[in-house]
């Protein structure tokens, strides 16, 4: 039976508590930090001559889909009634949204060290950061970046990505000028903050740990990526005639992206899962939209 991922704003108080409790139990068992490490280990930038599976690459969407499924499976081993909620950042746009309440994500960081000090993921309430590039062992955030304010992506920004009829285009990286994947991931040309759109911009808006490879330390990571995953499903529904994933075949030896991107039927490390395996989620989960 397929389970349902719901908008976080529709969760009851009891459902919020169950989700948070399941996350805290994974953290206490050490399972949570394994997810943080996996994400750090797979951040490869496109200026490096190495294979990229997670970011700046066509498999950005299927890789994170598989990553969320693993996390959700772990959560559901703890409490079979829990699923990953999604955060629709085109609608819940301020630090005053209930998402940031004390019974769900907790609020922004304090000035100076950006330490989160309210909610279940505050250091004082037992959420200790183990995998980080900074020396503090507490979660950090800087919601909305008050020192240089930045707005969350809008419905128009999402439409700019959703309107693309092709999934991805050569050179299959952060410089691809067209394609749904790069526009949703959010690497855009231009100047200033206009260069960071959609998915990337949300990481920037939250700030703190969400800015680095260790972004998984902030549990809002999962709610953000669940919405990105929902948008991929929605794009497929809106473009039934488009190839659901590209490239179909691996780039040839004389092409610059040879061995640097994963094609439709090749495995995505660290798993044997292929993009083809992740094209749909019928029978596993559905989104309540």
């Amino acid at each position: 039976m397929a389970y349902t991922r719901r908008n976080q704003r529709s969760l009851s108080r009891a459902e919020r508590r169950r989700f948070v409790d399941a996350v805290l139990r994974l953290k206490r068992r050490g399972e949570y930090d394994a997810f943080v490490r996996t994400h750090i280990d797979h951040y490869v930038s496109d200026g490096e001559n190495r294979r990229r599976v997670a970011h700046m690459t066509p498999t950005f969407l299927p890789w994170h889909r598989r990553f969320l499924l693993d996390f959700e499976r772990a959560l559901r081993r703890v409490d079979a009634g829990v699923t990953v909620p999604y955060w629709d950042w085109t609608k819940d746009r301020t630090p005053a949204a209930s998402l940031w309440g004390e019974d769900l994500m907790g609020g922004t960081g304090r000035r100076g060290d950006r330490r989160v000090s309210t909610g279940p993921f505050a250091r004082g309430n037992g959420w200790i950061i183990k995998e980080s590039v900074t020396d503090g062992d507490f979660l950090t955030r800087d919601l909305g970046r008050p020192a240089a304010p930045l707005a969350l992506p809008t419905r128009q920004d999402v439409a700019w990505a959703m309107g693309e009829t092709v999934y991805d285009v050569s050179p299959w990286d952060s410089t691809a000028s067209r394609g749904f994947r790069n526009r949703l991931e959010g690497w855009a040309p231009g100047t200033g903050d206009a260069r960071w759109r959609n998915h990337n911009r949300v990481h920037r808006w939250v700030g703190g740990h969400m800015l680095g490879g260790a972004s998984v330390n902030d549990p809002v990571f999962w709610l953000h990526h669940a919405f990105v995953d929902l948008l991929w499903s929605r794009w497929q529904r809106q473009h039934p005639d488009s190839a659901p994933f590209l490239p179909e075949r691996p780039p040839a030896p004389d092409e610059p992206q040879h061995r640097r991107v994963v094609a439709r039927r090749e495995p995505m490390p660290p798993w044997r899962t292929t993009p083809q395996d992740m094209l749909g989620h019928q029978g596993i989960y559905r989104y309540a939209e």
Binding site: Y43, S45, M56, V133, W196, R204, G212
Partner: peptide, 18 residues
């Protein structure tokens, strides 16, 4: 740690999304 982007720009490890 710095990483290189395909357009020649640089990402730092504290900031992977710009």
């Amino acid at each position: 740690g710095l990483m290189r982007r395909a357009d020649g720009s640089y990402l730092s490890m504290v900031d992977h999304y710009r």
